[in-house]
Structures are given as C-alpha cells and as structure tokens.
Simulated scan of single mutants.
Amino acid sequence: MPLSEHEQRMLEQMERALYAEDPKFATALEGSGLRTYTRRRVYQAVAGFLVGIGLLMAGMVAQQIWWVSVIGFLVMLGCAVLAVTGWRKAPKPGERAAGPGGAQPRRQVRPRRSMMNRIEDRWQRRRDEQQGH
C-alpha cells in the first residue's frame, strides 16, 4: 500500500533528522538498500557463471568425468537467470528506495492523487445529495 502525502512528508522529516543527528549511520543505512542488494546479487551471479564455465571446461578436458560438464552448464544457466532477474529488479539510477528526501518519483504520485480527488469528489456529491433530499 502506497504512503499518503502526509506520511511521505513525515518520513522525509524523519530522514532529514537522522541525517542531521548522525550522518555516518544514515549513510551506512542508505548503502544497504535494494539497489546495493541487487547489484551484489548480479555480481555473485557473474562470478558463479565464471565458475560454471570452469567446470564445463574441466569436464571437457577430463573426458571420463563428463557429468562435471553437465553440472557446469547447469550452474551457468542458473547464474544467468539470477543475473537477468536481479538486473531487471534493480531500481533505475535516478530512483531510490530510501534516502535523503526519498520521495517517490512524480509520475507515480500524480495518478494516485487524481484518482483520490475523484473519489473524494464523488463522496462529497453523495453526501450533498443525501443532505439535500
């Protein structure tokens, strides 16, 4: 459920207060966000992919142990899937999950607000109609 504008403002005030009191701690918290997690996951997947290539080649060199090649291929495939899904889930460079002034981008807030305005207008019209009858 998205935050209301009031809740977003309060969150921003708390973030600013945290940065003012302890900027070192706030910076450490910021680094543990979704973007850092997905970046780390992609790097691990790339490293696993390279291990898979090594296993594939080792299995090809030692022809008696062909199953090592199969395991290497499966490791490569799994790591490729992890890298692609991690890359797709990563926030764009301009976006932030939480940070100083961590408001969400405008394009997400505006449609919700207009919908809420329409709902409030309808509610107000219904109340006016009921009071008028």
Rank of each mutant, 00 (worst) to 15 (best):
F49N: 00
A58Y: 07
A58D: 10
I53M: 14
A17H: 06
G54Q: 11
T27L: 09
K24A: 15
E15G: 09
V42Q: 02
I53D: 08
G31Q: 12
W66R: 09
A47S: 12
I65D: 11
G54C: 04
Y43R: 05
G52R: 07
T27M: 04
I71K: 00
L56D: 06
K24T: 15
V70S: 11
A26V: 03
T27D: 13
G48V: 02
F25Y: 13
G48D: 03
V61A: 12
W67E: 10
Y43K: 11
M57D: 03
R40S: 07
L29Y: 10
V42T: 08
E15F: 03
T27N: 08
K24V: 15
T38M: 14
G59C: 14
Q64S: 14
L18P: 03
A17V: 10
Q44N: 01
E30N: 08
W66Y: 11
A47C: 00
V42N: 02
T36D: 02
M60D: 02
A62W: 13
V61G: 06
A28P: 00
Q44Y: 05
Y19K: 03
F25Q: 15
A17D: 11
D22I: 04
T38Q: 13
Q64P: 09
T36M: 10
A17P: 09
A58M: 02
W67M: 14
I65Y: 15
V68R: 10
R41P: 05
G31D: 13
L18T: 05
G52C: 04
F49W: 07
P23N: 01
F25C: 14
V51T: 08
W67S: 10
V70G: 08
S69F: 12
Y37R: 04
L56M: 15
L50W: 05
